[in-house]
Design a protein around this nucleic acid. Sequence first.
RNA 1: GGGCGUAUAGCUCAGGGGUAGAGCACUAUGUUGACAUCGUAGGGGUCCCAAGUUCAAAUCUUGGUACGCCCACCA
Length: 909
Amino acid sequence: MTTELSTTFTPADIETRWYKHWEETGAFRPERPDAEPFTIVNPPPNVTGSLHIGHALDNTLQDIVIRYERLRGKDALWVVGTDHAGIATQMVVERQLEERQDKRTNYSREDFIAKVWDWKAESGGQITHQLRRLGCSMDWSREQFTMDPHFDKAVLKTFVDLYNDGLIYRDKRLVNWDPKLKTAISDLEVETQDIQGSFWHFKYPLEDGVTFADGRDYIEVATTRPETMLADMAVAVHPDDDRYASVVGKHVVLPITGRRVPIVADEHADPELGSGAVKITPGHDFNDFDVGKRAGFVAGEMLNMLTGDGDVCQTADGLVPDEFLGLHRFKRDGVDGARELVVERLKEAGLLIPHIAKTKKDEEVEHDAEPRKIATPYGDRGGVVIEPWLTDQWYVDAEKLAAKPIQDVRDGTIEIVPKSWEKTFFNWMENIQPWCVSRQLWWGHQIPAWFDKDGKVYVAPSEKEAQAQAGEGVELTRDNDVLDTWFSSALWPFATLGWPEEKQPLLDKHFPNNLLISGFDILFFWDARMMMMGQYNMGRAPWPKLYLHGLVRAADGAKMSKSKGNVVDPLGLIDQYGADALRFFMAAMESQGRDIKMDEKRVEGYRNFATKLWNATRYCQSNGIGKSTTIKAPPARLAANQWIIGEVQSVCSEIESAMEDLRFDAAANAIYQFTWSKFCDWYLELIKPVFGGEDTPASTETREVAGWALDQILVMLHPFMPFITEELWHAQGDRKDDLILASWPNPRAQVSKEATDAIEWVIDLTTNIRSAKNELGISPGAKLAAFLPEASDLAASTVERSSAAIERLARLTPVTLGEAPAGPAMQVTALSDVFVIPLEGIIDISEERTRLEKALAASQKEAKSLEGRLSNANFIERAKPEAVEKAREDFAHHAGEAERLTAALERLG
RNA sequence: GGGCGUAUAGCUCAGGGGUAGAGCACUAUGUUGACAUCGUAGGGGUCCCAAGUUCAAAUCUUGGUACGCCCACCA
């Protein structure tokens, strides 16, 4: 029995109810031990996160895939969980402490970490709740967290193995240091921004007794970072730069510190830039670090003049004047920093070379520095300028780990979709730098390394084992640092399935996964590292296919960001239009290789689509059309029924091939067009006359076919719009199973060509009559008489078999096969048949003549163009036979049409 | 400095060697008891520019132009 539907569709009324039902009944992970597995893992959102529009896109696409595969009978597993997000989470909890005038360092490490766990227990579930609102059918029963105990094991094992294989090592070198978060970060976490800065020119005095040939006793250097001169260790000039050849090997005496440093020749110095001489600060600049090494300094000797906060501290040689100590590197909160003071002191000493600028009036004006755009590195989390800082950190030898993933993509073991990303992937992977994985945080996986008093390191999965390595009685201290969050999430495709435990049927069955869907923005952060760790730990690629989607942008095409205030909240859209509408929008807009611009009108349009389906179902119910009992198409004799069965088959294969290619837009549009333009606009209209009176074999057959077709729509639409389809599925009758676990259509019915031709004919007739009426200003409701003087076989049989539909849709009285009475009439075609519709007293005959002439002109134009092509010998000879055949058919059609219209005009007189 | 992408209707976008599509917007209209969150009909495009390949180019090639993104140490 069907359940009566309310007259309006309100998404909020059904969404929570169905989600709860699915989750409680285990529908997201049905027992299918013998089925072919299909596995995807969800990019674990930060546990601190809330659902943004990008998550909505990413997870909608994944849910469409997993629901589709589940309907196709696979053992579909969508692994879900959250990421402990080291920096982000620690920041959230620290901010909470700050609000209470408290701070992290008031606590022991253990106590602070306990607070973070408390926070997670209380507030960490927001995003998982929001994913549920989107309708995502993940396996919540196995929800993962990157700091679960079994995940710890996976991380420890990976670290120790990599260390033992020489692929993780400790090194002292410059790192990207975030002075706000006081931790090292990786290259990828640095974002370069062009900001307006200054380029200062200074005189560095040469040591006593050294001058240039012209008597000049200083060397000019230019810099954007004057403050770091407190740790300068050299001045570099290009080896081929004749201007400086005479002073290479000599020394300068640095202003302020009085440090005596050499002038060295190094290719790094660009003769074209500034004066061609550059100050070298190996401890605070990546290039200078390399120059310094080439000049013979070892890392341990390189001077450091900044604390981890970015404040000035004393250098090892003790030459920094007291007035600098404790100043911040730059001006901060209106207080001058070391930069400003250095400039001031040099200016006072007459060592600043002013920049001469011309005003608009061509007057010369002196400035302290030349204005200049400077590419400045910022930390992506802390948002402050990164300081290259000399520290000991742990590095992963990414270059070695990258070799197999590169090969996997190269030989097709991993397919990247869209393919255009491959180049970007190769470009990065082939130039990959060592990955700094240690972070000076408390929240995260603590590095499994212990040091003895002499600084010797012991890496082991536990302190006990480290102690065993070190020998009894050796006092060990554990490394305080934790690992980069991405180190653990790189293990996601297998650590979530139980690796490295020995016996893991789940792992055996579901690794490798079948597909990874992610935004291109984490291609390097996450996807590439999963490839590396998959190969390293499991010996194979984690998935055979990587689908990369774009960003969701604001309506004006700008990137959404909190600071711009143009962020669209997906939850707000769900509240307003329903999750189904938002999901459908995401799918319909997801063409490969392009970002999605937010378009709320379109979301509204898909809400309307849901309403349309709702009302179509209500109509079905009011005519006794309920659930279908078969998966196979019911037997059908009526033309309309055969036609819709054929159309279901064709849309089904269209969707299947779109899904095979991961063309979400094509799949969504196919089901949309079928449902609205075929099923609602034509099929439901065609069958209306059948339900006029008593039950007949025709009405029984039609109810069965219509119920079946609607069921197929619900199944095919379900991956895109899970909520409304599930609701309607049950409203259509009592069912053993929920739609989420139903079977994908498999229609292989025979459909006669005659039947489908007949429906095409009725549709053409109806459209043409409506159009003609409109053009002639005849009321659309007017019921007209129609005559077919020369009916084709198709016309004759269709008029006989589908008279009720024709009369209703085309608004005709019963069609007469035969001549029309003399008098004014309009001529309307249906495929190749010409109807004569008397219009005595209804219209002016000249209007009809105009209409026909217009149509004739159009047909003749087409026919002429085709004729021209067909009379071209080159075309006949060289074009593909199908193209020639097609052109002939088209010509015949248009020429025939022109003929018919000419005849019609003649009849008009 | 490298690499990638995009230019198609007023807007947002599909498509693609045989003469152009969708949704929204627009115009006209409201007949048939699912639906006005709707129906019906319609208007609207030198497919960025130029050259080349081809019987045929919006589609392929090359070169421009414009916009966007990513990577890179220019002090």
